[in-house]
């Protein structure tokens, strides 16, 4: 482990202290797409987090029944409020409540931050290459927001996002991504659609992310980027294999995969 990576270790859990369940109150709810909702939360005592980390959410029914799932944090490390973006999965147990039912004033519990590997900080300084599928964009958005909030240090990090969505209406954070991309020193954003014929004037790709797409839209392997890939398992498998084939250093490729469909 390098010194930088050591510095990126999660602040919580490191001292042998239990990660406590904390009450969280919904402050604001924003519809992102047909299926994805962002919940802005008030979490008293939140210890802070790194871009890319997630939380465990626990919902408790009136009869005491509980269900837990993990969700990526969408807000950058120093944001005043914690934000989660949750995609509603058909047949899911927790995501339909978070993405559909939750309203300002509702309360549930969470604990975290969790995950000390799929994390990024501007201090890592190598070029940043992000590859997202569907709601896999959420932890990568926390990284882009962290970069944008880091001023010159952020702008100094060359960054590219390649993001695959089914249709234009399924692109989470679409406006914010467009806004970031046109800022001076902003990241380069490439979108690709996999289930819908692109509309007239579409600037992006219209295929699943494959080796040619990565070669066209990625940070070249010769630039030795830190690579983060997040999405459904088949997409992550295909992308990670293609990246290794293109000559990216396997140890520099960090992956995060979704669990099974219908179980969120």
């Amino acid at each position: 482990m390098t010194a930088t990576e050591a510095a990126l270790r999660p602040p919580a859990g490191a001292g042998g202290r239990r990660l406590a369940w904390r009450p969280a109150e919904v402050v604001e709810r924003m519809a992102e797409t047909r299926r994805a909702t962002t919940l802005v939360l008030d979490v008293p005592g939140w210890p802070g987090h790194l871009a890319g980390q997630h939380v465990d959410v626990r919902l408790t029914a009136e009869d005491g029944y509980q269900a837990q799932r993990s969700y990526s944090i969408a807000s950058p490390p120093k944001a005043p409020r914690l934000a989660l973006t949750v995609e509603r999965l058909e047949g899911g147990e927790v995501s339909p409540w978070l993405a559909g039912e939750a309203r300002p004033g509702d309360r549930f519990e969470l604990r975290g931050p969790i995950g000390g590997y799929f994390t990024w900080s501007v201090a890592m300084s190598r070029p940043l290459m992000l590859v997202a599928g569907g709601s896999g964009v959420v932890p990568l958005m926390a990284m882009l927001r962290h970069r944008a909030a880091s001023g010159d240090a952020g702008r100094a990090v060359h960054a590219r996002l390649l993001y695959s969505a089914r249709a234009v209406a399924d692109i989470i954070y679409h406006q914010e991504l467009q806004r970031l991309s046109v800022e001076p020193g902003g990241p380069e954003i490439n979108l690709t659609l996999t289930r819908e014929r692109p509309p007239d004037g579409w600037q992006g790709f219209d295929r699943r992310i494959d080796a040619p797409t990565l070669a066209a839209a990625g940070v070249a392997p010769e630039m030795d980027p830190d690579v983060y890939v997040c999405g459904p398992t088949p997409m992550v498998e295909a992308v990670a294999n293609a990246l290794v084939g293109l000559g990216y250093e396997p140890a520099r490729i960090r992956t995060e995969r979704f669990g099974p469909t219908g179980e969120g």
Binding site: P23, G64, W97, E101, E109
Partner: peptide
């Protein structure tokens, strides 16, 4: 202390 969540019933658990 456990927080009960309004409107959450969960999947059938039997």
């Amino acid at each position: 202390m456990t927080t009960t969540t309004r409107g959450f019933s969960g999947r059938r658990r039997a």
